[in-house]
């Protein structure tokens, strides 16, 4: 698991790569909360390089989304594919989070 950030049109884009599972969820959450500590208005979580997610990883994404909504920021999620997309759909996250197929759509939606 590796987390990195970029700035795209004034949006804080956070890339999560690799696996978000029981083993990586705790360090991932700490790192993600640090990235949004300064309360950025617009946050995009890009999952295009995420290979695997379990419910522990979903909890991390949900926790970050709650945090951003808690300070009235806007959070979108883009790029889920394969098993990650399937897990998001089965868990009903498509109705809880703003999910976009690709990053351009997500960026345009802010």
């Amino acid at each position: 698991m590796n987390i990195s950030t970029r700035s795209v049109d004034g949006i804080l884009a956070i890339d999560i790569e690799g696996k978000l599972d029981t083993q990586t969820s705790t360090p991932a959450l700490e790192e993600l909360l640090e990235h949004i500590d300064a309360r950025p208005d617009k946050v995009l979580i890009s999952l295009s390089s995420l290979e695997f997610v379990s419910s522990a990883g979903l909890r991390v994404i949900l926790r970050v989304a709650k945090q951003v909504r808690g300070y009235s920021g806007d959070l979108k999620v883009s790029g889920a594919q394969g098993v990650v997309k399937e897990v998001l759909e089965i868990s009903g996250f498509d109705s809880l989070l703003d999910l976009y197929e690709d990053e351009a759509q997500a960026v345009a939606s802010f």
């Binding site: 522990a56 979903l58 909890r59 949900l62 709650k66 868990s91 009903g92 809880l96 989070l97």
Partner: peptide, 16 residues
Amino acid sequence: ESSIEEREIGGLGIHL
């Protein structure tokens, strides 16, 4: 179906 703010996570892993 519950909203993001009131959602319970327990049981999600088994559901998956």
